[in-house]
């Protein structure tokens, strides 16, 4: 880590409408950075600007400190793994991987070695002479990665590379990708709309919505300290409750006043309170801060997911203990579990 390898300064992109608005972002060397956001929020567009396939309408793009706004893709030390892989159908695996090296006029002996090394890295040894369409989706995806990595780019861009795979293969490839990134020591800029994928793989997560960055942080930060309701809502399931910040460390919601750890809001400011379902503890009715009736309960494999009606609000609770529908229960949480967000940053 350390050096900024890529920096976006006030990058905007207009098609018929504005799809990216003043993106400011930097990527450190050897970092695994993920752009996360719902469909259409501008992730691919951002990545295509980095790759050089689109030019920003406004703003500046720096690579290693140099402005590369007008540098065509073939002169950038960046390689891309495309969403649909885009492997060349008229070439076999060997020639697909060798493509970039041949352009650089690398000698045949070195090409042979490098291709072999790459196939080993992506766990497809001996596939040199296979045709592209004889490969499964997961294998094609790994060839696409090998084809990009063989050029030893400084930065690798990956656009939802696991999107087409089934769940099990996706989990395996997530681990493999992360492993490869550590092994080869390359900066990854990764695009996904799968929050779990983003949280498990990344060093840094950039949450986007409507062409704007909502929050940049480590997965833990993003998860525990969402800066606004959009992030809280998008990352995991959350209870977002209207409340009033009475004073520093004191908040009122659902008819009661609680201690909390947040401060710095104006007195009696209207705010949002975020309560994670897994942070809430279900207790007998008389022990809870808030009382309610269970209206639904679903088994989710590791835990039960229950909805508790507390009169003005329905709270989502996750617990390893099951309560039945119509049970009266109490809910408890600690001041640490209460996350306060100001209302202006609500952006949906």
């Amino acid at each position: 880590m350390g050096n900024k390898i890529i920096e976006l300064k006030n990058i905007s992109k207009d098609y018929d409408v504005r799809v990216l608005n003043k993106i400011n972002l930097y990527v450190n060397e050897n970092e695994f950075l993920t752009l996360l956001g719902p469909s259409g929020c501008g992730k691919t567009t951002t990545l295509r600007i980095l790759g050089g396939f689109e030019y920003p309408t406004e703003g500046d793009l720096f690579f290693d400190g140099k402005n590369i706004n007008n540098v065509p893709p073939y002169k950038r030390q960046i390689n891309t793994v495309f969403q649909k892989y885009a492997l060349f159908p008229h070439l076999n695996i060997y020639e697909n991987i060798a493509f970039g090296l041949r352009i650089k006029k690398t000698g045949d002996g070195i090409i042979k070695e490098e291709v072999k090394r790459m196939l080993k890295l992506v766990n497809l040894e001996g596939f040199e002479n296979r045709e592209i369409d004889s490969l499964s989706g997961g294998q094609q995806q790994r060839i696409a990665i090998a084809r990009a990595l063989v050029n030893k780019p400084k930065v690798l861009l990956l656009d939802e590379p696991l999107g087409a795979l089934d769940l099990k293969l996706r989990k395996e490839m997530q681990l493999e990708l992360k492993h490869m990134q550590r092994e080869v020591g390359i900066t990854f800029v990764y695009v996904t709309h799968d929050q779990e994928e983003a949280l498990t793989m990344s060093d840094t997560v950039v949450v986007m919505n409507n062409g704007e960055i909502q929050q940049i942080g480590t997965p833990v930060d993003i998860y525990n300290e969402p800066e606004n309701a959009f992030v809280a809502d998008f990352i995991g399931e959350s209870n977002i409750i209207d409340g009033i910040m009475n004073e520093d460390y004191l908040v009122t919601f659902l008819g009661r006043t609680f201690k909390c750890v947040d401060y710095g809001f104006p007195r009696n400011e209207n705010i949002h309170v975020v309560l994670r379902p897994e942070d809430i503890v279900m207790v007998p009715e008389n022990e809870g801060y808030i009382k309610g009736t269970v209206t639904s309960t679903i088994f989710k494999g590791v835990h039960y997911e229950m909805i508790v009606n507390v009169g003005t609000f329905e709270i989502l609770v996750q617990s390893t203990y099951q309560s039945s529908v119509d049970d009266r229960v109490g809910l408890k949480f600690t001041p640490d579990d209460i996350h306060i967000m100001s209302k202006e940053t609500w952006s949906e």
Partner: peptide
């Protein structure tokens, strides 16, 4: 597929 052209540019061609 237009992406093939982009992939080629991407790989330095």
């Amino acid at each position: 597929d237009q992406h093939l052209v982009e992939a080629s540019h991407d790989l330095g061609a």
